[in-house]
């Protein structure tokens, strides 16, 4: 879902750069206060895992591929603020080191994949596990992943509409349609990764969120 430069109009990407800087600065300040020594490797390893998993594109229907985004998984394990920080670092390094995603639109990419991914993933997971209980963890993780990707795609589509690239009536169904399928992959990987970590290292799932 990495947007290249040129797709978004300057007012749209500039506003999202400002928004992303603000949210990431807030996250860094909030995380700093509660960061314990045990969280440092957690942030680093999850960042590396999300970076690596994003490289493995899997084919979906209609000659299209998708890849894991990771915002929901990070938010479930670390809490939403630390997740936004990790996602911002991953997306920024992809852009700066590997030219994956444009540089003017870096704020937009951090916003769509990192901020929305973490906040939606966190909200959906917490809501379901509170409502139904811990036994709903796999379903909650799946839905958190699916919803986080769908809302990231929705935000991307709305930014394209605001930039005058495509009309809402065509770009919204197109973006949501293809990402509804990629989202199944996101949901499955989120649930599987969480289950794997919970079974090999249960203490990591119980780690205090920052």
């Amino acid at each position: 879902m990495h947007i290249p430069d040129g797709y978004l109009s300057p007012p749209v990407w500039a506003a999202l750069d400002v928004a992303a800087i603000g949210v990431v600065a807030y996250s860094a300040r909030a995380v700093k206060k509660r960061l314990g020594d045990e969280h440092i490797p957690a942030l680093a390893v999850l960042g590396a895992f999300i970076f690596a998993a994003q490289m493995v594109q899997f084919p979906v229907a209609g000659g299209t591929s998708g890849h894991f985004m990771g915002g929901a998984l990070a938010a479930i394990l670390l809490g939403p603020r630390a997740a936004m920080l990790v996602m911002a670092v991953v997306v920024a390094l992809q852009c700066l080191l590997f030219r994956d995603g444009g540089i003017m639109v870096l704020g937009a990419n951090i916003f769509n994949m990192g901020i929305i991914g973490a906040l939606v993933g966190h909200g959906v997971y917490r809501a379901i596990t509170r409502l139904i209980g811990e036994r709903a963890r796999p379903a909650a993780a799946f839905l958190a992943g699916w919803c986080s990707l769908m809302l990231g795609a929705l935000a991307t589509a709305l930014q394209l509409v605001m930039s005058g690239v495509a009309s809402a009536i065509v770009v919204l169904p197109a973006m949501l349609g293809v990402h509804a399928v990629i989202g199944i992959g996101e949901g499955l990987i989120t649930a599987a990764a969480l289950a794997a970590i919970a079974s090999i290292r249960p203490e990591l799932v119980r780690m205090e969120r920052v």
């Binding site: 797709y7 490289m55 594109q57 899997f58 299209t64 293809v178």
Partner: peptide, 13 residues
């Protein structure tokens, strides 16, 4: 072994 097909946004574009 990753797929080289266009991703969701690329295929919409």
């Amino acid at each position: 072994w990753a797929s080289t097909l266009p991703d969701g946004l690329e295929s919409v574009a």
